[in-house]
Amino acid sequence: MDYLKVFITKSRIKSPWLLHFDCGSCNGCDIEVLACLTPVYDIERFGIINVGNPKHADLFLVTGTVNHRNKKVLANLVAQMPDPKVVVALGSCGLTGGVFREAYNVIGGVDKVVPVDVYVPGCPPKPEAIIDGVVTGLEKFARKKDDRP
């Protein structure tokens, strides 16, 4: 059984499917995220696939600030991801609200609504930083050996 567990942990690390949610970003971060998919950075090397559906995702990449309008959507998406999952907040906005944090409708960073595992700073973060953040997030799978509920 141990082999199986080891294999599953390894699989989790080697096959993180990624859901990207633009939570009110200025699109700067999003372009950097998409840059990761291009041949230059080619994150499919790590088995990462950009899926469009929380039900298939392991990794949740959030860019931008959270406001009153989209906080529900953010929470809903996280709720519809099956465990185990990792939430990565990208960019200054995702971390704290960034330049928009004083706006009347902005709540702040992603962690105001859902628990965040990895913070990737930058405005916008470079693709290398994003990939680094994702890889750091994967360590969570290795740490929590088996958190099937």
């Binding site: 949610f21 559906n53 929380p54 039900k55 529900k72 959507v73 953010l74 809903n76 998406l77 709720a79 519809q80 099956p82 509920p149």
Partner: peptide, 20 residues
Amino acid sequence: ARFSGPYLSGAQTADTESFE
């Protein structure tokens, strides 16, 4: 298993069969 409504782009309401 855990049951959730269908995927509605995250905009579903509490009854899961409608969206906001």
